[in-house]
Design a protein around this nucleic acid. Structure first.
Lengths: 222, 222
DNA sequence: ATGAATTTTAAGTCAATCTTAAGATTCTCT
DNA sequence: AGAGAATCTTAAGATTGACTTAAAATTCAT
């Protein structure tokens, strides 16, 4: 991943460059506005870090010009001022985030990663009654207990919870969870539903996973 | 759709407000807990965005208090920490989802839409008087009751409602619902029509399913 | 390679659903 | 009004689908 830093204070620039290179980013530095914009427009960068106050061309101006050509590349402002108006101004100009100076390097790194992380692979937690399924940590909680689920159990529960409130037909379940795309005549689903209900202690008055006879199953709040 | 943001950092609040307003939401902001709760309890909002750490009253506390009065309104937490325990705590307090700061605006928007989706009622639902048949949830409502229908009952009602206002000949019904394509001389349809009328409580002055003697049946508004 | 964990298959059991059939009722026509 | 046909209603027997369990097959980690 290539980053461009546009920052006129050589101390900060060097500090960032070193730190980010240790994190395996390729980093270029520009120390004034015009050169910064020119480099940015070369299109080789995956993310820009722009200082707010710059000789030559202000950060905002770079941002605005750059956005005309590149709509996607994330931009983070490094701003000494944290006056509300100005940051909003920056965000309006097309920035994705800003960070106030002075800042912890860790924090900046975190934000860079957020901006670079693919939009599709977001973390997500799903809630169903007092059941919480976290796709990020791959854990399932019921009340305040952790429930250990196997791979398939987890996948099945995730599918049901992703589709909370909608009926999940058996064919769709087999397709999504088992990746079987043809005729199926197996009882696996039943077995796993059974396992889930058991592990999650779903009694009759707490049947978050209801069966829709002849069709499939549905996860529902009560 | 009206949203309430309870967030003490003015930068974030303003950023969200602006972004969400561009998405055609009506947005109010409270910058501390007590005011936030008070506004929330006015009941004018379709969704709450709560910061975790707040002056006055914590996000969790607001969530808990609010849930006592409004069971349906979705709540999304904006949380800086992502320690699992704390988020679980939040979700148990009645939140519907949480998102870690910093986040992509797109991501938040996505989640807001997910939470609001069920209400916007864009499912494949058919309406007949006060009967609602939802093919997605495979549920049938009459007034505000849920009516349990079997597979065949559901299929038959769906067929009639799909063809609302048109006469459904018995042969067509047998073909579509029972998949019988040759001679039929069975009373099944009658039996099921009977079951439907019974389960749906269709009296003489509420005969949404009328029989067309010698031909078949027709579902009609009154 | 071995043992443990997980996944899948298979079979018995039970309950919900479907179908049939027969008597009761309603409708239509003369 | 009365006959005949269509529809309604009910209940019993047949069928299907889901639940449960255990054992076989596979995968995983040591």
């Amino acid at each position: 991943m290539r980053l461009l830093i546009v920052e006129d204070e050589p101390g900060i620039a060097a500090f960032l460059k070193q730190g980010l290179e240790e994190e395996a980013f390729a980093v270029d530095v520009a120390d004034e506005g015009k050169q910064g914009l020119q480099l940015a427009l070369s299109g080789e960068y995956d993310l820009l870090l722009l200082d707010w106050m710059l000789p030559g061309l202000s950060g905002i101006e770079i941002c605005r010009q750059f956005r005309k050509e590149f709509a996607e590349t994330p931009i983070i402002f490094l701003t000494a001022k944290d006056t509300l108006d100005e940051t909003i101004f920056g965000l309006q100009a097309g920035a994705n985030d800003y960070i106030k100076k002075p800042f912890h390097f860790e924090e900046l790194l975190e934000r860079i990663k957020v901006q670079l992380r693919p939009k599709s692979g977001q973390h997500a937690a799903f809630v169903l009654g007092d059941i919480i399924l976290n796709t990020e940590t791959h854990q399932v909680h019921k009340g305040n207990q952790v429930i250990h689920l196997t791979q398939k159990e987890f996948a099945l529960l995730e599918f049901l919870m992703r589709n909370k409130g909608k009926v999940c037909r058996r064919t769709r379940i087999i397709e999504s969870v088992w990746d079987i795309h043809f005729e199926y005549n197996t009882g696996v689903i039943d077995v796993y539903i059974n396992a889930l209900r058991k592990k999650l202690n779903l009694s009759a008055d707490e049947n978050y996973i209801q069966t829709v006879r002849g069709v499939g199953y549905i996860a529902n709040e009560l």
